[in-house]
Design a binder for these strands. Sequence first.
DNA 1: TAGATTGTTAATCGATTAACAATC
DNA 2: TAGATTGTTAATCGATTAACAATC
Lengths: 210, 210
Amino acid sequence: MKREYVSGAVIRRLPRYYRHLTELSGANVERVSSSALGKGLGLTASQIRQDLSCFGEFGQQGYGYKVEKLRREIADILGIDRGHTAVLLGTGNLGRALLNNFNFKKYGFQLSAAFDIVPERAGIEIAGVPVYHVDTLEDYLSQTPASIGVLTVPKGAAVELAQRLVRSGVKGIWNFTSMELGAHCGGAVVENVHFADSLLTLGYMISEEP
Amino acid sequence: MKREYVSGAVIRRLPRYYRHLTELSGANVERVSSSALGKGLGLTASQIRQDLSCFGEFGQQGYGYKVEKLRREIADILGIDRGHTAVLLGTGNLGRALLNNFNFKKYGFQLSAAFDIVPERAGIEIAGVPVYHVDTLEDYLSQTPASIGVLTVPKGAAVELAQRLVRSGVKGIWNFTSMELGAHCGGAVVENVHFADSLLTLGYMISEEP
DNA sequence: TAGATTGTTAATCGATTAACAATC
DNA sequence: TAGATTGTTAATCGATTAACAATC
């Protein structure tokens, strides 16, 4: 039964399903049951069937799920191949790490340009992506709209740039700064990658271990 | 009332509390109520009081919480200043980005060394951290134990290195690879930073927007 | 057909919110 | 003292798990 509202907990499991199914598919596995999938991901079979039922009926009774079919269904739910585009702001170490190592295309995003405030970086290319001066951001986006902006700038620049991105029509911000942007971004969705929060959580867990 | 078991949901909010309190403290704010704190973080006052009550009684009735006192209490709960140590494996772009930009010390971790498989990188220093060849990992850790290992290596090397870290006494793994390590790491805690999952979630959310 | 496994409904469990006595 | 705000208990809400008829 297709739901209109799907909880965040379910949505955050979808990428894990997708990753696991991609691996199975790569290993030429044809079919998988909810219980096998659950074992692979540390979840119950019941939860997986419940999760998937938010989006439709993808299995066959007595058989399970066709791996490749389910993988494509989830890709579609996640919006891969929906033609998303992205720009990246801030070509410091982290920005360069993403440009060089992260396969945006694999997840359905075309990264068309990067921007930096340092004049010397304008005009160069990093991993095939052209770098422009941040002053030209609005001009660029009016010509070449982007679905999301990737924020890899110093904390102090985050709010202003987020607002400029949103005003230029960006629908989501992938925020790698430690600034909380929720309040500043109007209708846009903010997805945070807070390294510090993650490390502090780990620190807590190793401290509490017996 | 002090609980022995604290849910993951509570623990993942603690770093946010800590960050917010650090900001208030920096702005010389002396006291804060649960409702003010809740407003700042997008949570209910009730939830904040409930969360804090897992660890003790830190407030005063009719007054609220002393910002600096609460900040220190949470730092203590999170295990900051517990003398954690860390090593980093893999000095590619992402590893270098962390070495150059991420302030481990600020979160209570001393990063003592980095390792790489490329022979030319052995002997250099990155942001003051010495880089050694990964063949010397066990020798090094037997002399200088580490609480956690930071994994910024290619996916294919993740499992083997995680296991070597755990065998050398590491208690936690901060995993930046896309490999799921849960099953391979015995008693050690694994904290994942999966960029792809984060981006896919964002992709879903901007696709579903009205 | 018999065994397996789905999708879904019902039961349980856990987390969030509300309410309030205690008290600064 | 009166107003404010805590810590905690009770009520609600939502998410996970269990059960099972449908059926491949």
